[in-house]
Simulated scan of single mutants.
Amino acid sequence: MKSTIAIIYFVLLSNLLLVQHSTAARIIYENNLQQAIPEDWQILNPDWSSTSQGWRGAKHNGNWAILQSPIQLPENYEITFSSQLEADSVLVEVMLNLAVDEHSAGQMYRYLGVLYGALNKTLQFEDRSLYAPAYMGEEHYSAQTEDNIGRLPQAHIEISTNWVDWRILKLGSDIYIWLNQEEIAHYSDRLNVVPNKGRLGFVVNGSVYLKNLKVRALDPEEIKKPEYFNNKASLWNRGYILFQ
């Protein structure tokens, strides 16, 4: 009897360890962002520094602070982190699927931008380009919106200078955004503006803290779209609002 119980206990413990290992294996990056910025993170535009509150990005000499991670995002993923805008800051932008444009000789990148903007009080998706200094004849990188201006969704939100908890979920061509556990915006990439693969990055206009970054690759059984998502974002196109 004791040997049977021991075998059952061993089997249960083994299964538990396998489940824990499987769960941990899906985390492809985790960092509380409260230590020095690792060398494999590229500071494309200063100023970026590490503080006890988190990594701080600040506009420098009129140029937006831009930070590129080493994280290669998979096809389906979940990103969570927290951001805090300092007073009078304008923008924190999340760069999703940052990838080199194959026609630019490595001098231009394409990505989907998710912009948390204080001026317009919006969270918006934008089809973005990142230009290297040599491409533009400048001394700094430049992030710009050129194509599909006003054709991607945006949501009007309350901008906070407190910590904001982000959750970004990409399932195939669908991207969902939560802020402080509240459903905010959904974008279905019908225009094919999101590169298939690419890196994660951040852009700051003003001064912003970042902390508690985690990126998970989603297993096939987790790839289930929300049955109902309270999407607050709409499309603004030639003066008409078209709901996504």
Rank of each mutant, 00 (worst) to 15 (best):
K2P: 01
T4N: 10
I7G: 01
L13I: 13
L18F: 08
Q20W: 08
I28S: 05
Y29A: 15
E30W: 06
E30V: 08
L33T: 01
Q34C: 12
D40M: 09
D40P: 11
W41V: 03
D47V: 11
D47M: 06
S49A: 12
T51I: 10
G54F: 10
R56F: 04
R56G: 08
K59V: 14
T80E: 08
Q84T: 02
S89W: 04
L98Q: 06
A105L: 07
G106H: 13
R110L: 09
G113H: 07
G113D: 13
L115T: 04
G117Y: 00
G117F: 04
T122E: 05
L123E: 06
E126G: 00
R128F: 08
S129I: 05
L130I: 07
Y131L: 12
P133Q: 04
A134Y: 02
M136H: 04
G137K: 08
Y141N: 12
Q144A: 15
Q144V: 09
T145H: 09
T145R: 12
N148S: 07
H156Y: 12
S160R: 01
V164L: 04
W166T: 06
W166C: 08
R167Q: 04
L171M: 13
Y176S: 05
N180W: 11
N180I: 09
E183Q: 12
A185P: 00
H186W: 14
D189K: 03
K197Y: 13
L200E: 00
F202I: 05
V204R: 02
V204H: 02
S207A: 12
L210T: 03
K211S: 07
V215D: 02
L218P: 04
E221C: 01
E221H: 04
P226D: 11
P226V: 11
P226A: 13
F229V: 00
W236T: 00
N237S: 06
N237Q: 05
Y240W: 07
